[in-house]
Design a protein around this nucleic acid. Sequence first.
DNA 1: CAGTATCCCCCGGGATACTG
DNA 2: CAGTATCCCGGGGGATACTG
Lengths: 140, 140
Amino acid sequence: METIAENQKVRTVKKLEKMFGHIDFKNPPELCPVRDVMSVASDQWSTLILLWLGYFPVLRFNKLKKYVYGISNKVLSQRLKVLEADGYIQRKAYPEVPIRVEYSLTAFGRSYVEKLLDLAEWMHDNSPKVMANREKYGLL
Amino acid sequence: METIAENQKVRTVKKLEKMFGHIDFKNPPELCPVRDVMSVASDQWSTLILLWLGYFPVLRFNKLKKYVYGISNKVLSQRLKVLEADGYIQRKAYPEVPIRVEYSLTAFGRSYVEKLLDLAEWMHDNSPKVMANREKYGLL
DNA sequence: CAGTATCCCCCGGGATACTG
DNA sequence: CAGTATCCCGGGGGATACTG
């Protein structure tokens, strides 16, 4: 029990070292790839799109729009394009009339969704706690 | 090897079921707590703040501002307030002159940073791949 | 030092209409 | 059906100056 917690802590520190240990605080990199990647992949809408594509192997534009409720045409097509460019999803168009387009995760995208899902699950499980905290804070 | 991958897949599907299985697609909830919590906790600036607070147990306003380079006064204090309200961090003010204020993670915040860190690590490790994808896509 | 207060700007993104 | 094209708006957020 104690050792498990200890191990977790050690691993956490290791990861933090890995991410932050090498940064020169005097001269912060003006272009941080991690920030860049993050800005695409962990954007609100993108997250939802990816999770739904994790749930359904293949989705078409309008289905996606229904599941990611609240998203507009513009933003959806925008996000899809970027997610495709970054290699998370793939677009397959069938030259029928009317045209049919199918979106699905790439292997790379699937590996990301796996991670993403851990986080989403945490939020799912802990949102009541957050709400409670928020409530309590409001009363102070 | 094969079974490990299989197991991973099964677990992923389980999680997706848990998150999406119960949603009524006809009547999407107009207020989704997960989205709400997500909008705070996985905001760009908040993420960086939390990660730095994972790295340094205690940080003061101006230190934080230096590490989370690029953030403005306004946004930093805004995010700190929200993160405190949601229970991720705690604020401790010492009535000295000039005043000293220390921010640190709560236990709850630490549990979140753990998850967050997994994702951040993934991005750290995979950002080259994303950049390569992006490059290649640009050439098409 | 740790923030507020103020001003201002810009663009993300919604709504709608349209097209191949 | 799967998007683009346009228009338009609000407010998120940057810069700066100020204060307890």
